[in-house]
Design a protein around this nucleic acid. Structure first.
Lengths: 231, 231
DNA sequence: AAGTGGTCTAGACCACCAT
DNA sequence: TGGTGGTCTAGACCACTTC
């Protein structure tokens, strides 16, 4: 209820919210429960708190698209609203020592697939995804991934025992290779974004390695970082 | 103590940690306190918990440099270990409608400064930073920022009433402009990283706008995203 | 002096997992 | 059936801010 009140703009930017004691009394719950609710809102950047003074709404809440975009954690990366995925090559087992070592696999054998991502019909990215060969086989058997919205890693998720918990990114700029440029509507040699991602599950095991190239005229990489919690 | 035990590797990867009840008894603290400690470790990606089963170390803890790097929140961006900053132009007030509008300032007046960042003596980035003119004046009066380790925004922090709470990033690839390329050791026209950052404080007020260009042969943009908390 | 959020104790019930 | 983490109540003390 508190979240809804804040998101619906029932408080002005910078306005002080009710105190823990007030809400605890009003809703007949313990102070601890009110605190938990507030901490969730703090984590989402909707409110901030100053000891001795009170709780205030951030003004982020009133910037449309700001608190709605799940902003800059894994979630955003795995549910890519508004764009479409096209499977150029389904999962296939092959030998790739480098990709295998990135995934810390026991042998050089990996499963590889290739997808292209489009926005409103215009392709803007081509991605090679490398997986554990066993996972690749199971996905292929079930026809996963398939064209449409969504991402490869959210499809992979269904074939893993533990949830995907994080991803390391490495972003750089390169001249577009000839084979790739035609697939995403840019000139060969043009400056493009090159992003490597290494996904791991909650146990810290690597579960996916992806190499993406983005056409910078159709897409720019956007993300949002926030302070951890309390410094 | 729990964090130290995990970081020092006193538990094997995947090993089950003591339960909340055990630690509560052993250290003479309430279960609530033990829970808080565990939640901090979960937030840092050192352990994960499965209801009904227990708490386990992630394996991230044993990857050197993994849990030490503060990984992919604001903190990492504001304390840039191992690199040096050189002030090419101190804060100066000027008219720049675009930068002013990004900062949501009332007029076109902004303070601008230029810094260059180096690693082991090799410059790899040039950044223009835009601030509220008043903040710029106060910083200039105190000779801030100055050459050395650290970042502009951590220096700016000292001149703000509220802490910097987050930053929006926009990353793309561009050909290196002639004026910039010489400053960071790359060829004109070469593909470089172009990063725009918009910093805001805990009240959601924009406090800094930075435009950086990185030489991709000397630097690649690295960051780490993790799952929010529990899905 | 009164009020704020931050931290802590003590105790309870629940859903889920292992056996 | 007993143990696990997840959630909740009730009550306490603290540092700090505000008046």
């Amino acid at each position: 209820m508190l979240r809804a009140a804040v998101e619906e703009g029932q408080f002005e930017d910078g306005e002080r919210l009710p105190t823990e004691a007030e809400l605890s009394l009003e809703y007949g719950v313990s102070r601890h429960t009110v605190r938990q609710a507030f901490q969730d809102l703090v984590a989402d950047g909707l409110v901030y708190r100053i000891p001795g003074r009170g709780t205030f709404v951030t003004g982020l809440s009133s910037r449309p698209g700001m608190y709605l975009r799940s902003v800059g954690t894994l979630e955003e990366m795995m549910t890519w609203a508004g764009t479409e995925m096209e499977v150029l090559a389904p999962p296939e087992t092959l030998e790739d020592p480098e990709a295998a070592s990135r995934l810390a696999l026991p042998s050089a054998e990996v499963a590889k697939l290739v997808v292209r991502r489009s926005f409103e019909g215009n392709p803007f990215a081509v991605t090679d995804v490398y997986l554990d060969p066993e996972v690749g086989r199971r996905m292929r058997a079930e026809g996963s991934p398939h064209d449409g919205p969504g991402t490869v890693m959210s499809a992979v998720q269904d074939f893993l025992p533990l949830p995907v918990a994080g991803v390391s990114l490495d972003v750089t700029a390169v001249p577009a290779p000839a084979g790739i440029s035609a697939l995403m509507g840019c000139e060969s040699g043009e400056a493009i974004l090159h992003v490597e991602r290494l996904y791991y599950d909650s146990a810290g095991t690597y579960v996916g390695f992806a190499v993406s190239r983005y056409n910078p005229r159709r897409y720019s990489y956007r993300l949002e970082l926030r302070r951890r919690t309390t410094p």
